[in-house]
């Protein structure tokens, strides 16, 4: 995994930021300037699209610095807690905070390439909703600073019915030799080729262990619906579009599309 340590990012982008001179970093902001900092253009479209993690973290560094409690007030030790999804063999290390799990822990570093702006797209904290309110603009969801639809991309329900499985994967996995690739070796979309994932690493690990696939596609299914993934064409894809896929786009949202530079890594 070259060029992937956060530290390296920091150095690269710190230099860039200082050279560019247009961005504010925490060190330049005094406490009494909080009001100005809070409304810095970097927090909003379009500048936020260019914001680097290093810039974000220079103020919001508690996102990575803060650790979970060693033990809860009632004495539950973090080291002895284990959620079911944490038994997956990609999941390792001590209990961590949500942000660290998405940015700096091994799973995050190995399989994902998430940035602050992957989820945080910036909005006016004074605006509860777009003006006028618009049901289509779900990125404003009444006080969530992150659109839950973004989370749904990985944390949705496993739509086993659509895959023609007899039951939920937990029940039918034995039938399919606990091997997703039994079917998906042929039915392959390129949907991992998005800029917040590391497609090759995922593919490679997926061949070794179906739990890797399941870990996202239903394993950590916080939500009760599946994400309506874009229907990327793949070689050998049937001509007929099934009913449930009819309205789906054929590409990821532009901001998730992979650039040439990233693709060559």
């Amino acid at each position: 995994m070259k060029f992937q340590t956060s530290l390296f990012h920091y150095i690269v982008f710190l230099s860039a930021a200082l050279a560019g001179g247009s961005w504010v970093l925490a060190g330049e902001i005094k406490a009494e300037q909080y009001e100005h900092a809070r409304w810095h253009p970097m927090h909003f479209e379009p500048a936020i699209d260019q914001a680097t993690d290093e810039q974000c973290l220079s103020c919001h560094r508690e996102i990575l610095d803060r650790k979970v409690l060693d033990q809860s007030p009632a004495g539950v030790k973090a080291s002895e807690a284990l959620a079911w999804y944490q038994t997956l063999n990609t999941y390792e290390g001590p209990q961590e905070t949500f942000h660290r799990r998405h940015l700096v822990t091994p799973l995050a570093k190995n399989l994902m390439d998430m940035k602050c702006t992957t989820c945080h797209q910036g909005n006016n904290p004074r605006e509860e909703a777009p003006i006028p309110p618009d049901v289509a603009m779900t990125d404003f969801t009444l006080r969530k600073m992150v659109d839950p639809e973004t989370c749904l991309m990985c944390h949705g329900r496993n739509p086993y019915e659509r895959m023609g499985l007899p039951g939920p994967w937990a029940e039918s996995r034995e039938t399919f030799q606990n091997n997703c690739l039994l079917c998906h070796a042929g039915i392959r979309t390129n949907r991992h080729r998005v800029n917040y994932l590391k497609a090759e690493a995922i593919e490679e690990l997926g061949t070794k262990d179906a739990d890797i696939c399941y870990g996202c596609h239903g394993g950590r299914q916080w939500y009760r619906i599946a994400y309506p993934y874009p229907r990327h064409a793949w070689q050998g894809m049937g001509e007929e579009v099934p009913e449930w896929a009819k309205d789906r786009p054929t590409e990821s949202q532009p901001r998730f599309r992979i650039t040439q530079e990233q693709a060559s890594k």
Binding site: V68, P73, A74, A81, Q95, T97, K144, Y223
Partner: peptide
């Protein structure tokens, strides 16, 4: 939520669609 059992990982906070 029994916050005496909470270790502050904040996953629930992120997962809730309503804040």
């Amino acid at each position: 939520i029994d916050s005496t059992l909470c270790i502050g990982c904040r996953r629930c906070e992120a997962a809730c669609p309503f804040g």
